[in-house]
């Protein structure tokens, strides 16, 4: 078991947003987190990395290798962020810094996390770009995000997330902002990386179709609570919760 979330509750001011989330991520497996917009999927991801908005209070337990992340002071949490747990965001046109080169964004966290020098970091960055299938990595390294297409940008964002060899990858709707034509490519890439690197992936999506394509396990979130969880086949074929059934019926 790589990452375990138990009884996670989050409130922002007087609004309860998550009310006792239970989730377990495993090495080499993609865990799909489904649920309609506003159900708390993104906040679950943010809670794991300590990125909740100002004024949010979180309780419960988020355990990684025997440590509770919720109790960690900021300095130690910074050693987990990007290093043990990394995140890919929804829209790569806003989640990459527009004024920093791809190379800079790939390497800047390698120094604090891995202690790599400039040349080593560059070499590793080029390998990562190859791994996510960016053509001509040496050229891409010098370029800026706006010089790439949306799909390529998301591949770069995945490479940035993988830069420090994390155990856990949280992908928050990684295909929602992309052209339909490139969505499958990104999903296949994530699946491949999960198998190859033994990542534990939390794949957040509101699209059960995406889920059924690559997830091993599926959890369904509703109003800040996991209403159904289990192996993909059983959840999608024989859902027990009426909410899951209604979600499945909405599929084309």
């Amino acid at each position: 078991m790589t990452l375990t979330i138990t009884g996670l509750r989050v409130a922002i001011r007087d609004t309860q947003i998550l009310s006792g989330i239970e989730l377990a991520l495993h090495k080499g497996q993609v865990h799909g987190l489904a649920g309609e917009s506003g159900s708390g999927k993104t906040m679950t991801g943010f809670a794991v990395l300590g990125l909740l908005p100002h004024g949010a209070r979180a309780s419960g337990r988020i355990e990684l290798a025997g440590r509770d992340l919720l109790g960690l002071p900021d300095k130690e949490l910074n050693r987990v962020r990007g290093n043990d747990i990394a995140m890919v965001f929804q829209d790569p046109s806003t989640s990459l810094h527009p004024m920093l080169t791809v190379g800079r964004q790939l390497t800047e966290h390698m120094r604090p996390h891995l202690g790599l020098g400039k040349a080593e970091a560059r070499e590793r960055a080029l390998e990562l770009l190859t791994k996510v299938r960016i053509p001509n990595p040496a050229e891409a390294y010098r370029r800026y995000p706006h010089q790439f297409s949306g799909g390529m940008r998301q591949r770069i964002a995945v490479a940035v997330a993988l830069a420090c060899d994390p155990q856990v990858l949280i992908a928050d709707e990684p295909t929602t902002a992309l052209d339909v034509t490139v969505q499958a490519g990104i999903l296949r890439l994530l699946r491949g990386l999960c198998d190859e690197l033994g990542l534990a992936v939390l794949l957040i999506t509101h699209d059960l179709g995406v889920m059924s394509a690559i997830a091993d396990e599926v959890s369904v979130l509703r109003d800040g609570l996991v209403v159904e969880s289990g192996a993909r086949k059983s959840v999608l074929r024989t859902p027990t919760h009426p909410y899951t059934r209604s979600l499945l019926e909405d599929l084309p």
Binding site: L49, L51, N78, R79, V80, R81, G82, N83, A86, M87, F89, D91, T94, S95, L96, H97, P98, E108, H109, P112, H113, A157, V160
Partner: peptide
Amino acid sequence: DYVRAGRAKGL
């Protein structure tokens, strides 16, 4: 977003 992404990298 990119500021949150930067924090998610542990900068």
